[in-house]
Design a protein around this nucleic acid. Structure first.
Lengths: 202, 202
DNA sequence: CGTTGAGTTGAGCTCTGTCAATAGCTGTGG
DNA sequence: CCACAGCTATTGACAGAGCTCAACTCAACG
């Protein structure tokens, strides 16, 4: 199968909304964000992908153009698979098709949750859920945010200012301790209540 | 292939969030809505499906449980395909797998747009886009809403009250004429500007 | 140092959700 | 045939979450 390797510097666009989807990518190294922009320039992040993650496949199967923008957050190496060759391969390998179906299905799940968050939950609840889902949130040690807080805001569908304020409130109320990118979870049950929408941060 | 036919009265649940996804459905007749509920009971509609549409497939491929609720809006006849048989069939028929991939990809596209709407656009913009996308919005004849306005509110991520008010404003400003479920588009360019986020409904 | 970017904080404002009351329509049953 | 219940839709009053604009701090870096 023909695949082309591709290097992109931090901050560079991989593709933009509306571009023709001539194939899809796999992250070998680095980090890529997929996002939408509003007319005023606010940003909603749809995905953050790292090594091993494929992206842009939906454009290959559905229509022809990418529905969002892709930018490298760090210097990255990508593998590009041209459309035709990939469709061909999938046709020949049923297990590959099933794997692809599983990937897309999981992505639909995550989107459904994001929609639920944006429409039916408030920012403190989303943030609480996000913190609890962070790798390492189970241990007593502080969690370390892997991305700048502004990106987290974009992920949660809010602004850096609001994120900062809510984090402040959480720490005022003793739910967490914030030290730059290090966040220690102090009151897990309270965070869980927040995430479930059973509590306010009044 | 083993498929079971299934009749459900209006208002009846087909499945609920968290139920085990033992298979998927196809609508033969009627209408089914897929939705999420907030802790306070507000509702966000994810899909509205009619005759010919499959639903619940993602649960078959990804995890095991349905990520949302499904309720029949009208008396409906459904076809149920058990998981194992379907996976088997897809494995044997590559074209079927590709078709399924296309379905899921289109669904991802639509979800991405919904996320964009909820996060980056205001309700008037969403409503304008919705009206313009309605079948028959191209003609001079009035469009007829197929579902109650409360359902449209749930689809757009807002409440019936807000929807009503915005429709009122639009009609006050001469963008549309509203007569119950019949809506005539009077000022298409203005609606397009609204949908693009270039205008306010001040 | 000056500059740049990340993060925080304050003040103000607007959108939109909530609660409540009302009106119109439909179907049911006494 | 009428009263009443129930649903859809509309409108008003109100409150609050969160966005915007702006200033300021701090750390990293050339």
């Amino acid at each position: 199968m023909i695949a082309v390797e591709h290097s992109v510097p931090a901050g560079a666009a991989v593709f933009s909304e509306g571009d023709e989807g001539t194939g899809f990518y796999v992250v070998l190294e680095g980090r890529v964000k997929i996002f939408k922009l509003s007319a005023e320039g606010r940003e909603q992040i749809l995905h953050l992908f790292g090594p091993g993650d494929p992206f842009g496949e939906a454009a290959v199967f559905a229509g022809r153009h990418f529905p969002a923008n892709a930018v490298a957050l760090a210097p990255s190496r990508l593998l590009f698979f041209p459309r035709a060759a990939f469709v061909d391969l999938v046709t020949r390998r049923p297990s590959l098709a099933l794997g692809m179906l599983a990937v897309l299905s999981r992505r639909l799940h995550r989107f459904a949750r994001l929609i639920e968050d944006l429409s039916l939950r408030e920012v403190p609840g989303r943030l609480a859920a996000y913190l609890l889902a962070l790798p390492g949130a189970g241990s007593a040690a502080p969690v370390v945010l892997e991305i700048p807080k502004a990106q987290i805001a974009g992920l949660l569908g809010t602004t850096p200012e609001t994120l900062s304020r809510i984090l402040r409130k959480m720490s005022d109320r003793g739910l967490v301790r914030v030290d730059g990118p290090r966040i220690r979870i102090l009151d897990r049950p309270a965070l869980e209540d927040l995430a479930a929408g059973e509590t306010r941060l009044a």
